[in-house]
C-alpha cells in the first residue's frame, strides 16, 4: 500500500491508502475524495480529473503521456507546468507519500 494525499483548492488535506497499480483518479473516486470527477473513467477524454502534482513529486510521477497535453487543454482550470490528468498517473511503490493539489473546478 502507498499513501496519497489530495489537497483541495481550499487547503483541506485527505490522505488515503492506495494499491500500487491503481491510478490517482481511481484512488480518489474509491475513497470519496471530492474535487476529482473522472467522468470518462480514465480514458483520457474528459479532463475532469485534472490535478497539480506537488513540486517535490514531479520527478517520481514522470512525464505527461501521449495525448495528455491536448486533453489538458480541455481542463476547466488553469493548466500549469505541474498539471497532470490524474487518471494517467499510475501509482508505484516509490510514490508512497505522493501529494497532489486539486484545482477549483473540474467541469
Amino acid at each position: 500500500m502507498v499513501k496519497v494525499t489530495y489537497v483541495a483548492a481550499d487547503g483541506t488535506r485527505t490522505t488515503v491508502d492506495a494499491a500500487p497499480g491503481s491510478n490517482v483518479m481511481q484512488t480518489a473516486l474509491d475513497n470519496d475524495v471530492d474535487g476529482i470527477v473522472g467522468e470518462c473513467g480514465g480514458a483520457m477524454m474528459c479532463a475532469t480529473c485534472h490535478c497539480y502534482v506537488d513540486d517535490d513529486w514531479t520527478e517520481k510521477t514522470g512525464e505527461r503521456h501521449d495525448g495528455e497535453d491536448d486533453m489538458l487543454d480541455c481542463a476547466a482550470d488553469e493548466v500549469k507546468e505541474t498539471s497532470r490528468l490524474s487518471c494517467q498517473i499510475k501509482l508505484t511503490e516509490d510514490m508512497d507519500g505522493l501529494i497532489v493539489h486539486l484545482p477549483e473546478e473540474q467541469a
Binding site: E39, C40, G41, A43, M45, C46, A47, A107
Partner: peptide, 19 residues
C-alpha cells in the same frame, strides 16, 4: 455521479459546453 455523458473513450465531447 451520473452517466448522462457516458463514460470511457466516447464520453460526450460536448459535456463542458453543455454544462
Amino acid at each position: 455521479v451520473h452517466q448522462a455523458f457516458g463514460s470511457g473513450p466516447h464520453h460526450c465531447a460536448g459535456a463542458h459546453i453543455a454544462r
